[in-house]
Design a protein around this nucleic acid. Sequence first.
DNA 1: CATCAAAGTTTACAAATGTAAATTTAAAGT
DNA 2: ACTTTAAATTTACATTTGTAAACTTTGATG
Lengths: 146, 146
Amino acid sequence: MVKLQEKESTISDSEWEAMRIIWTLEPVSSTKIIQELQAKKNWSESTIKTLLRRLVKKNLLSTKKEGRRFVYTAKVNQTQVMAEAAQELLNRMCDMHKGEVLLQLIANSPISKSDLSKIKEIIATKEKDAPYMVPCNCLPGNEKMC
Amino acid sequence: MVKLQEKESTISDSEWEAMRIIWTLEPVSSTKIIQELQAKKNWSESTIKTLLRRLVKKNLLSTKKEGRRFVYTAKVNQTQVMAEAAQELLNRMCDMHKGEVLLQLIANSPISKSDLSKIKEIIATKEKDAPYMVPCNCLPGNEKMC
DNA sequence: CATCAAAGTTTACAAATGTAAATTTAAAGT
DNA sequence: ACTTTAAATTTACATTTGTAAACTTTGATG
């Protein structure tokens, strides 16, 4: 039996910044990435190269040598990685307050008309058998209302 | 001028686990926290004490000595901390895909009837002047559609 | 082909985190 | 008061992350 997915590597804050550039411009050269990132962050060339190498090692980027420089491409889908990261965060939190949290996120995020109507749809679906209260699940045994 | 909030300290994964117990049971003794956490995680007593001490240092918990043990209380509001953490995560991500991400979060989270209807309300409000598309904001200068 | 400059690789180092053993302190019982 | 021992504090150590200097390689150019 072969170990396929070694537990999806986490993306650190700085790495995330680099990934965004790559997702937007891929396939993109190291030089271009450095240029774009330096327009935003006070990072040395060296720092950015380190980030890129770590991302390759984490298997989130693939590279192809082109002349003297590398060209990077993302190996993972942006929206999916975003959703996974957000989901993982929520998974570590108390069920009881997720509704309120999502409420705030929606209020503070720019959302397109089409996404809004999709959201309306799931809301409608969920409403059918939504509970009156979502119990706290912070304790191991008894899920008590906290 | 006084520096009031020194940049709210981040809560690490393990620390989060401890905070959940405390938010649920506060005021709660070290002993009880250790007992509850060990019912969930394979952590030594020592490890848990370290977590608690770090949380106190981060100013997220306050303590009161009671007999031979400490009693802990959270100094921060759970829902608020949850919302802030989630918001900060989203802030580091591409605007263009936040709608889709929220869609998935809503689909996968247990939400009460009342929270659902509150969400419906903001959705309705937002729909009025929602854009047809939310542009990608991953590059420093030109916000291009990616 | 020799040299330079750009790009990549190594090494570095402090802070934060996960995890815990060893040691000290002090409450409680005798 | 003295001992026991639960609880707190110190010390520890590896890994990840943020950040970067130093060094090496290699494509390009004279």
